[in-house]
Design a protein around this nucleic acid. Structure first.
Lengths: 210, 210
DNA sequence: TACCATGCTGACCGCTCGGTCAGCCCGGCC
DNA sequence: GGCCGGGCTGACCGAGCGGTCAGCATGGTA
């Protein structure tokens, strides 16, 4: 960049800033905003604390940048999953469950924000994201509604079941839950089967494993 | 208490200690362990910071005491809800949803702990609590299994749906979710109806509103 | 070679944190 | 009255926090 276009206050997107973001995200996801110090972020990123402040004006700015990236990742879920209209609820539920496990950090940050009771700006962003995801799912779901179920209730139940299964993943072996259903994808399949009575157990068309 | 029985290191259960606990719980539930200072707890309780340390040896001790109380409250859910065996899944789901809303703080602390990725002692306690609740539900559920559904999957789906509905309660008006289902109890009813196909919509026996 | 913008750092600042302590207050007992 | 013990407090401590800053290193330009 030539000197004229130097954006002094916003040097984002540089490789160094990326390394800091990469280091900060798992920390914030694991311990939350207050549980992580800028010193810890700096050490994890292999740079000095002052350097972190060189790239991000404040701790809140860094946190927001981390959030933005997680939100993008989360949002990409909507496109990647594809409509449940082709393939039924089962493949959709499995894909959703797979995505949750593949993006544990983003999911963690998302849930953490939803749990906050104070109305911060970040929380509102998380809420909008949740509303967007829910709407998108509800909209593409009515085809499976044939069992007489409300598509909104179906969507929340499906997402909620998958999320709770994820959160309990370490506890499941200690419960009475059948061994088969401890497997995330099998569980998602079962939930989809319960919620979409039109498909009964007559859909062994699991064709796209990847 | 006569001087001989003075338990110097453990003056718990005194009214003053209770006031501190009462003040600390909503704070911890809203902002987490790291998000609350002992100063804030003291102010909220109307006592000096030193007094807080007089009753609780450390911040971790206070946090543990708050957790213990929330866990007791959460555990009482299991007894109060009653078996779904009498009354079907619907009344159970409604009672569960009601309990979630009546004990927002305990639920918040519980979810917060489950979200932590580090294996702290408190987290293990929360996990055991979750396992206990899930087991208890699974055990008393098989009666509703007639639809061919696994009782474990049914239990997780029911709990997950109710929990997610709770967490999204502020967002729901901004989504496509039908206005009726924004009401927690109606939503719980609908979820129970979806999960227990034997009951179809033939159970308007909502007799015990309190 | 001299120059300079830029990425980066060690040292530092004021402040708040969790935690300590000497001592005040006050009701019960002689 | 004098004493005493426990609930409670203001004042304080070292540590770590978020954030700042003068200056070092380095590579492109002339």
């Amino acid at each position: 960049m030539h000197p004229a276009t130097a954006q002094a206050a916003l040097p984002e997107e540089t490789p160094a800033a990326q390394r800091i973001l990469d280091a900060a995200r798992p920390l914030f996801a694991a311990r939350g905003f207050d549980g992580v110090s800028m010193q810890q972020v700096a050490v994890a990123a292999g740079v000095s604390k002052a350097n972190v402040f060189h790239h991000f004006a404040s701790k809140a700015t860094l946190y927001r940048a981390v959030l933005r990236r997680s939100a993008d990742e989360f949002r990409s879920l909507l496109g990647l999953l594809g409509d449940p209209q082709h393939g039924g609820l089962g493949p959709f539920a499995r894909a959703h469950m797979r995505h949750l496990h593949a993006n544990l950090e983003s999911v963690g940050m998302f849930l953490r924000l939803l749990g906050e009771s104070e109305l911060t700006v970040q929380r509102q962003q998380a809420e909008e994201l949740a509303a967007e995801a829910l709407d998108s799912l509800i909209e593409s779901l009515p085809q499976g509604q044939r069992g007489g179920h409300d598509s909104g209730a179906q969507a929340i139940a499906l997402l909620g079941a998958n999320l709770l299964h994820l959160q309990l993943r370490h506890v499941l072996p200690r419960t009475r839950l059948g061994a088969t259903l401890r497997d995330p994808e099998r569980f998602a399949t079962e939930v989809a089967r319960m919620l979409d009575p039109t498909a009964h157990q007559t859909t062994p068309e699991a064709a796209d494993p990847c």
